[in-house]
Structures are given as structure tokens and as C-alpha cells.
Design a protein around this nucleic acid. Structure first.
Length: 475
RNA sequence: CGGGGCGUAGCGCAGCCUGGUUAGCGCGCAGCGUUCGGGACGCUGAGGUCGGAGGUUCAAAUCCUCUCGCCCCGACCA
């Protein structure tokens, strides 16, 4: 018998690592800070990709691919960008046995090389907007890593667009943020808070950064995606210019936005429980696991024949039959619960006789018997309920652990005891932000779009303000 | 890069302090049999240069020196 999973309430970090390994989402690689994404984890990523990719294409974006290597000089062209990324760069200095004349950076993100290409491609206002996305890997020399949440190499999509005006760029930046939210809430069943990053937390080189923040099971925040309005910073650094209708040379306004394999970590930490992973049906690599039950060979034959018959009714779903001989049904139940499969179908000799099956929900544990008539629509209904319930549970958790206050002692008490999100008035001074971070380890996750506009006093310094910021400890 | 911990079979560990047969245990793995509606059991078996290098010794997993790697916690970050 395998040792039981550690409880998330006992040690959330340890639980997270155990779930990822045991559910076979990923494994540690022989290189420090790197991981192998295993087939089950990669299938989840592919479903994430599909569902995002569809949304990008529906809004006019096209996929392309830019090189992994970037000339070192490119990174240095935008001063804030180089400051932000220099400490995290992997740099290739040798190739083919010789020292390179100019070192090559392994991309940490592609604003620079894409900016360069855009400067070659864009000449006229008629060329705009350029709406390109790429799916790729990037490398950042992280000192402290954790599977999916922070690895030295990770997979993501990065969108890069160029526009004629600030307004268009801003519209694009927000449009993408709303796409991310739609994806997070409707596909991953993760409720999110949208907002703007503070100056200290924004992307290196951006005019401003919008973010999508989610609450994990330990009440810490995770930045689940970001969308940046880069203003004309990169356009000026890379000479991305166009002639407008009046034959005037203008700098473009660019944006960039990304969502990474970190999102898989969010799915694990938002929905998971003491039994392991809980995957939202819309993204689950296996939506329905069928566990046959038999004693004799004769029963086995009957049960498997019946399953063959039923499978035709379930063609609309991602279904797997676990007909392994070497494990008992009870073992399989636990195994597939650990791996987060939303719905289980149990079928044994009794069920074959009665033309019925037992359905079991991963989210609630509920088990019930249904006749095999119209099984497809019953499964569909169950999956829809699970999808909705996962979102509602997560939303309830988020709401119950979000506090609105303006008293700093209360603020500290919440952050340091149970944890949670705190929405508190903030005077916009970096000094208050920094002091709060020093004293509580809570950072400004964002300035939420949703603001009540009521006059109040900064939770730290007491200065009058109407602005409220979202504070939390974060991964 | 600072602090802590750990490297012994695929995984988890014991043995080390106090050197001494053939290096053990649990899980997993293989074969056979009995099981199978919530993590089954019996029997048999395979699997180890004890992270690496040097040293001390008649003798090193064990003592000494150096080294490599990994994990956790901090600072930095998607």
C-alpha cells in the first residue's frame, strides 16, 4: 500500500510537490531548477493551449515563431528592461568550440527580438496593427525554483502587438486581460481579480502592467497572467516606426502579454484537496475514468463487453478505461482521485445485469446509480455540474478570505495568522508599499479595477486617499 | 548568494556516534496462486561500485580532508 498523501493543511508546500509528482504531472530533471513535464501534465497544458489559442485567433491574432537566441546587445537597448532581466539571463558565450564575437542571450522573454523584427516589417499605418502570438519556452536563471510555479525554463505563450495609437494599444492590453479572465473562470474554474500592478511590481520596460491574480488553497496569491502596455518604450529602443496618413513618421505603441505553465500550478493549488488533484472538466486530460469490477473471468468478459458498448455513448468525452488486472477497484478509485479525474464510472456484474452504472464525482465524492439509457447526456450534465461547482467553491473561498479594512493592526493580524487577501486604502507611495512588504511580507498584488471610490486613509501612513490596493503574500 | 537539511536498491529509510561475517527493512518491481463494489494477501525471486576523489587503518557505508549534487527557508522573480 502506498503512503497517504500529506494533508494540504498540514504542509501546503509539501502537499503541492507530492501531488505533482504522484499525479505524474511533472518530475524533477537532472538539471537544477528544471522539470520534466510528463504526458499527463503536458496533456493538461495542451488543453490550456487549445482553449487560449482559440480565443486569440478569434480576436485576430496569428501565431509565429521567433528565435531562442537573442543578441546580447538587444537586451541592453531598453534601459528598464535590461535592469529587470540582467540578473536572470542565461548567456551563451561559446559555440562550435569558439568564443562568440557577441554573446547570445537565451530568451527570457521576446520583446527585444520581436521589436527588432517589427522595426523591419512596419512601414505604414496600413501595416498596423500587428497581432502576433508565439508558443515557446523561455529561460530565467531563478535562484529558488518550484515545479510549475518557478522553473528555470518554462513554457508559455507571449503575445506581441504593435498599434498606431496609445488608445489602440491600451484597448488590446485590456482585451487580452479579459480573455485571460474568461479562460481562467470558464475553463479552469478559477475566480480571479483583475487590476493594475504598482510601479514596483510592473514589467521591466512597461508603461503599465495589468494582472490577473488568483487565491491559492493556502490563501496566498498567484499572478496567473499579465498583460503589458509597453507604451513607446520598445518602439523607441528598436525604432518601430510608421508613416501616418499625413506622411508623418510616428513611433508605434506596443503591448505584450503572457500566460505560462505556472497556470498548471494554479489549477493544482486552487482546486486540490487532501485526496489530491481536482481538475476542471473542461481542461482535464481524462474527463471520465471507467473502473470495471469483476471476480471471475466470465464476469470480466461480460463487464468489458458492456463497457465497449457504453463507450460509443461517450464519444463526446475524453474517456479512459482502467482495465488493469494488477490493481483492485479500491486502489484505482484512489489513484484516479489523486490524479483529479472529474467523473468516475464504476461498472460491475450487478450493473451489467441491471443495465446501470455507478457515477462518482471527484469534487463532492457523491456516488449514485444511473441507468445506461442516455448515458451521454447524464455524463454531460454531471461534468457541467462539477465544472460549475469547482468555480463556486473557489469563489466562495476567495470571498470568505478577502478582507476590506483600513486598520494596520488588523491588516497585520490577518496576514500573519490565517492569511488571505486584504483590500486596503493605499496612498500610492512606494515607501508605504515597501514598509508593508518589509513588515508583513505582503505585497501589492494589484490595484483592482473594482474600486468603491470612497475617501479613506492609507492603511500605513494615514494619508487621505480614495484608492484601494489588494495586498497578499504571494508565490 | 546567505541559513538549514540530506546523499546507502526505482522510492522512502535504518545502519555511522563506538570501524570488523555475505550492508538491512518497508514500499515498488518480476513469476505463480488466491483475491477484486473504497488503497488485498501468500510464497518465490531480481535489484547495491553505500554521491565522487583522496587519506588513516590489518580492515571504512562508518573516522579525517576535499569535492559534487539535490531539497527546504530567506533575498530576487511569471
Amino acid at each position: 500500500m502506498r503512503e497517504k498523501l500529506i494533508s494540504p493543511t498540514e504542509d501546503f508546500s509539501e502537499w503541492y510537490i507530492q501531488v505533482i509528482q504522484r499525479a505524474e504531472l511533472a518530475d524533477y530533471a537532472p538539471v537544477r531548477g528544471c522539470m520534466v513535464i510528463r504526458p499527463y501534465g503536458y496533456a493538461l497544458w495542451e488543453n490550456i493551449q487549445q482553449s487560449l489559442d482559440r480565443r486569440f485567433k478569434e480576436t485576430g491574432h496569428q501565431n509565429a515563431y521567433f528565435p531562442l537566441f537573442i543578441p546580447y546587445s538587444f537586451i541592453q537597448k531598453e534601459s528598464e528592461h535590461v535592469k529587470g532581466f540582467a540578473p536572470q539571463l542565461a548567456i551563451v558565450t561559446h559555440g562550435g568550440g569558439k568564443e562568440l564575437e557577441e554573446p547570445l542571450v537565451v530568451r527570457p522573454t521576446s520583446e527585444t527580438i520581436i521589436g527588432y523584427m517589427y522595426s523591419q516589417w512596419i512601414r505604414s499605418y496600413r501595416d498596423l496593427p500587428v497581432l502576433i502570438n508565439q508558443w515557446c519556452n523561455v529561460v530565467r536563471w531563478e535562484l529558488r525554483t518550484r515545479p510549475f510555479l518557478r522553473t528555470m525554463e518554462f513554457l508559455w505563450q507571449e503575445g506581441h502587438t504593435a498599434h498606431a495609437t496609445f488608445e489602440e494599444a491600451e484597448e488590446e492590453t485590456l482585451k487580452i486581460l479579459y480573455i485571460y479572465r474568461d479562460f481562467a473562470q470558464n475553463e479552469a474554474a478559477i475566480p480571479v481579480i483583475l487590476g493594475k500592478k504598482s510601479e514596483s511590481e510592473k514589467f521591466a520596460g512597461a508603461l503599465h502592467t495589468y494582472t490577473m491574480e488568483a487565491m491559492m488553497g493556502n490563501k496566498w496569491a498567484l499572478q496567473a497572467a499579465t498583460s503589458h502596455n509597453l507604451g513607446q518604450n520598445f518602439a523607441k529602443a528598436f525604432e518601430i516606426r510608421y508613416l501616418d496618413r499625413n506622411n508623418q513618421l510616428q513611433y508605434c505603441w506596443t503591448t505584450s502579454w503572457g500566460l505560462s505553465t505556472r497556470f498548471i500550478g494554479a489549477i493544482v493549488m486552487v482546486h486540490g484537496d487532501e485526496k489530491g488533484l481536482k481538475l476542471p472538466p473542461k481542461l482535464a486530460p481524462i474527463q471520465v475514468i471507467i473502473v470495471p469490477i469483476w471476480k471471475s473471468d466470465e464476469e470480466k468478459e461480460k463487464v468489458l463487453a458492456k463497457i465497449g458498448e457504453l463507450k460509443s455513448k461517450l464519444q463526446a468525452f475524453r474517456v479512459k478505461v482502467d482495465d488493469r488486472e494488477e490493481y483492485t477497484p479500491g486502489w484505482k478509485f484512489n489513484e484516479w482521485e489523486l490524479r483529479g479525474v472529474p467523473l468516475r464510472i464504476e461498472i460491475g456484474p450487478r450493473d451489467v445485469e441491471a443495465d446501470q452504472v455507478v457515477l462518482a464525482r471527484r469534487d463532492t465524492g457523491e456516488k449514485w446509480t444511473v441507468s445506461t439509457d442516455d448515458l451521454g447526456s447524464k455524463v454531460e450534465e454531471a461534468l457541467a455540474k462539477i465544472q460549475a461547482n469547482l468555480f463556486q467553491m473557489a469563489k466562495k473561498f476567495l470571498d470568505e478570505n478577502t478582507y476590506r479594512l483600513n486598520d494596520y493592526q488588523e491588516f497585520k493580524r490577518i496576514i500573519e495568522s490565517d492569511g488571505g487577501f486584504v483590500i486596503a486604502p493605499w496612498c500610492e507611495s512606494p515607501q508605504c508599499e515597501e514598509a508593508i512588504k518589509e513588515e508583513t511580507k505582503a505585497t501589492i498584488r494589484c490595484i483592482p479595477f473594482e474600486q468603491d471610490g470612497q475617501p479613506d486613509r492609507c492603511v500605513y501612513c494615514g494619508k487621505e486617499t480614495t484608492l484601494k490596493a489588494l495586498f497578499a503574500r504571494a508565490f
